[in-house]
């Protein structure tokens, strides 16, 4: 099903922000608009985090600013749209870079979903009903609304605790006859499933292509959330926030990178999982190493599912 949305994902207003505007106060950095060569630029400063040990803090801020600088340059060489770096200040742990006009993919997807829901309000109702759908009537009539009868309490004798199974057992709720354990059910991330329109599909394909290029250039982004991707007015995707990036040819690192994207999508856009699927599918068809990376991705995801969660 493809939807024709009248609104373009990019906001109509094209005005550039004023100097001094704070664009973002993420977890790590403060991003402000600064004047630069008669135009504007973005300055990303990593202020000290007083909650952690000063020596750890200094080391982290330095290395991340450095890594961000290096990896943006590597990505640019690989033909990926990234902000141009104008200046790096090591003592201040800051980068001054090109201002990218556009809208975070996160917002594009959230607005798309919002519009979709307001056009199809009934889908929310349906998703709720399926959650609270009455289950088959309780076979043992244990509901409290049930009037009390004079039936004697169920006697528990040793026999009933035996593991021997007879077809009869099914009729009697013995403490150890019904199965006691199941595992590995598929997670239903959302009962709400929203179809992608052509524009969103295009974004997913574009993203898959970019990530393939990035990984083929042995750059690991390290923080692939939809907040860290800007859709420009010309419908290109600019990758930002390389603070956790590093160079690596290791398929494990690439697989974990994709795993993080999946996590970001399932948590932030659970109803739009096909966005991630399409991105991955495109990645698979574009990246030279995709077979081994995707195989490892399965291992990474299985590892997460198999981990003991006791305690």
């Amino acid at each position: 099903m493809s939807l024709s949305l009248k609104r373009s994902p990019i906001m109509e207003e094209t005005a550039y922000p004023n100097v001094g505007t704070i664009l973002g106060q993420g977890a790590e950095a403060i991003i402000t608009v600064v004047a630069f060569n008669e135009g504007i630029a973005v300055k990303k400063v990593r202020p000290a985090k007083t909650y952690r040990l000063p020596q750890l803090d200094t080391k982290l801020r330095k290395s991340r600013t450095n890594q961000e600088y290096k990896c943006i340059q590597r990505a640019e060489k690989a033909g990926i749209l990234v902000p141009k770096i104008y200046h790096i200040s090591k003592p201040e742990s800051s980068l001054t870079m090109e201002f990218i006009h556009g809208k975070a993919i996160r917002k594009v997807l959230i607005e798309y979903q919002h519009d979709y829901i307001s056009q199809h309000p009934s889908i929310i109702q349906t998703s709720k009903q399926s959650t609270l759908a009455p289950q088959p009537a309780d076979p043992y009539e244990l509901t409290p609304t049930e009037p009390q009868n004079d039936e004697p309490d169920i006697q528990v004798d040793d026999n009933q605790f035996s593991t021997a199974q007879s077809s009869d057992d099914v009729q009697h709720p013995l403490p150890n006859t019904p199965p006691l354990q199941t595992e590995d059910e598929d997670i239903v991330h959302s009962r709400l499933v929203i179809a992608l329109d052509d524009q969103i599909k295009h974004i997913a394909e574009e993203l898959g292509t970019i990530l393939a290029k990035l990984h083929d250039a042995n750059v690991i982004h390290g923080d692939l959330t939809t907040s860290n991707m800007i859709l420009t007015p010309s419908n290109q995707i600019c990758l930002i926030d390389f603070g956790l990036s590093y160079a690596s040819a290791d398929i494990e690192d690439k697989a974990v990178d994709l795993h993080l994207l999946r996590r970001a999508c399932t948590s932030t856009h659970p109803a739009l999982l096909s966005f991630y699927d399409l991105t991955l599918q495109t990645y698979a068809s574009k990246s030279v190493n995709s077979t081994s990376v995707l195989k490892r991705l399965e291992v990474v995801e299985l590892r997460g599912r198999k981990r003991s969660m006791a305690g």
Binding site: L23, T131, Q181, E183, T226, K306, R307, M309
Partner: peptide
């Protein structure tokens, strides 16, 4: 009434919360 060793947090439909929170705020332009 079984048990599951790896019953994940995000498998549960939290129907008792009124605010379903379809409009998350947050960073990003």
């Amino acid at each position: 009434t079984i048990i599951r060793q790896r019953f994940r947090t995000d498998e549960v439909d939290v129907v008792w919360r009124k605010d379903e929170n379809y409009d998350m705020q947050g960073e990003g332009m």
